[in-house]
């Protein structure tokens, strides 16, 4: 197996608040290969966004990466100086945020916000940086780019703003793009367009991508592999086909049952009962225990990550009593 582009191992990111230690990311390990799209799925507050921020080095106090390794292309990011990390950000790793209405600075023109991203990482004549910005706008499908370059963010629709944000992320041809629910705030039709563009662009540029979302349907169409997160931990990992068609963790099964589907009309939805636990006050043992229909006595102890099924397919689950890998199709 080739060396992965990104290797995250035993990552713990905790927030030290007055109310106690919030374990937003707790012992998370995964890898992303070159050109691969990894879906990171979980409910709000499951820590998925914090994984993105941890990789980018954007965790602010009272939060702190407590332990673990983040290795990108052979370099341990946690060992880098702030300046070296800054040079990686927006250059080798780019990030796209959830709400396109908020991510662009309202008082700066689009060209200023694009050109500065290039000039922060290489010395280039302004005109060349401008030309590259223009090309990036064309690449994400923005019509009349010359006009758009000299416009302000409020003159764009939400979908167009997200395209601009994506264009900015692609400016320096990053090796890895972290997309933090970039389509959640958009209309369904726009969402589809953006997904299509992202798929096309990552294929064209060969960039790897971590797609953070709460929407399994989005992941199904986009990702190669999926990690399902619950309460700061990855509870199930595998290829998209495996996880969506044959989930082994009861939580993944619950997520799939919560989504209305076209094929099963009239079938009653089975939402997961209860609420996600507070990350500041996790129950001992398995954090999903209280909401799980399959909990057994062993669940009072914390489950370890175990490989399941065919080892070569990279399936892992963190559960004492997982579903059998085949018996799911009802």
């Amino acid at each position: 197996m080739s060396v992965p582009l990104l290797e995250v191992e035993g990552l713990r990111t905790h927030f030290f608040t007055k109310a106690g230690v919030v374990k937003a990311v707790d012992d998370v390990s995964f890898t992303v290969s070159k050109g691969e799209v990894l879906g990171l799925v979980g409910e709000s507050g499951s820590g998925k966004t914090m994984i993105g921020y941890s990789i980018m080095g954007l965790i602010d106090p009272p939060g702190r990466i407590v332990s673990g390794r983040i290795v990108l292309g052979g370099r341990d990011l946690r060992a880098l100086s702030p300046e070296a990390l800054r040079q990686l950000r927006g250059n080798r790793i780019a990030m796209i945020f959830q709400d396109p209405m908020m991510t662009l600075n309202p008082v700066l023109r689009i060209d200023v916000q694009m050109v500065e991203t290039i000039l922060a990482h290489e010395s280039l004549p302004r005109a060349a940086a401008m030309e590259r910005s223009r090309a990036a706008l064309v690449r994400v499908g923005i019509p009349s780019p010359d006009e758009r370059l000299s416009a302000y963010p409020h003159q764009f629709s939400g979908g167009m703003r997200q395209r601009v944000a994506i264009a900015i992320a692609l400016l320096n041809n990053p090796d890895l793009i972290i997309a933090d629910e970039p389509t959640t705030a958009l209309d369904v039709t726009i969402q589809g367009q953006i997904l299509y563009e992202m798929q096309k662009l990552t294929r064209e540029t060969g960039a790897a991508m971590i797609w953070v979302t709460h929407d399994l349907a989005v992941v199904a169409g986009l990702a190669d592999r999926v990690c399902v997160m619950y309460a700061g931990r990855i509870v199930e990992e595998g290829t998209v086909a495996d996880v969506i068609e044959r989930p082994v963790h009861p939580y993944t099964q619950g997520l799939l049952d919560s989504v209305p589907s076209r094929t099963a009309r009239g079938v009653r939805l089975k939402p997961i009962q209860g609420m996600a636990p507070s990350l500041a006050d996790l129950p001992l043992g398995c954090a999903f225990r209280d909401r799980c229909g399959r909990s057994i006595d062993a669940c009072l102890g914390a489950p370890e990550t175990r490989m399941v099924g065919d080892l070569s397919r990279g399936r892992a689950v963190r559960c004492h009593n997982p579903l059998p890998p085949v018996a799911v199709l009802e």
């Binding site: 954007l58 040079q87 990686l88 950000r89 927006g90 780019a94 908020m102 991203t117």
Partner: peptide
């Protein structure tokens, strides 16, 4: 968010 995005762009 625009400050976080600016940091994510690697600005000084």
């Amino acid at each position: 968010d625009y400050v976080k995005f600016a940091r994510a762009k690697g600005l000084t």
